[in-house]
């Protein structure tokens, strides 16, 4: 039976991606997370008890970011956010 070359190529391609490219994509994701974390920390300063001089301007972003907020505080090591009713 002749070898299924396209299938073999796809398998090599997938293995190459896992072996070489996945760590690089992880590094990119880590950098994106770092930037996202910095943004969220600035947006939600007041929720953390720190006065935010720019809150008047950042307020309208809250609805957009609230979904990401839950992921963020978990990444920061808080399984549940301490302020009741704010998040989870």
């Amino acid at each position: 039976m002749p070898p299924d070359l396209p299938r073999l190529y796809r398998r090599i391609e997938a293995f190459h991606d896992e072996l070489f490219t996945a760590p690089w994509r992880s590094a990119l994701q880590r950098e994106a997370n770092r930037q996202q974390d910095a943004l969220l920390a600035m947006l939600f300063l007041e929720a953390l008890g720190v006065p935010n001089p720019a809150s008047y301007y950042t307020l309208e972003l809250y609805p957009e970011m609230v979904e990401a907020f839950h992921q963020w505080h978990r990444r920061m090591g808080l399984e549940r956010f301490p302020e009741i009713g704010f998040c989870c």
Binding site: L19, A22, S26, Q29, R30
Partner: peptide, 17 residues
């Protein structure tokens, strides 16, 4: 597991990493 740092990986691939 967070999909970035903590990712369960096949042992052959992880050996390569």
């Amino acid at each position: 597991k967070d999909g970035v740092d903590y990712v369960p990986t096949n042992k052959h691939v992880l050996f390569g990493h």
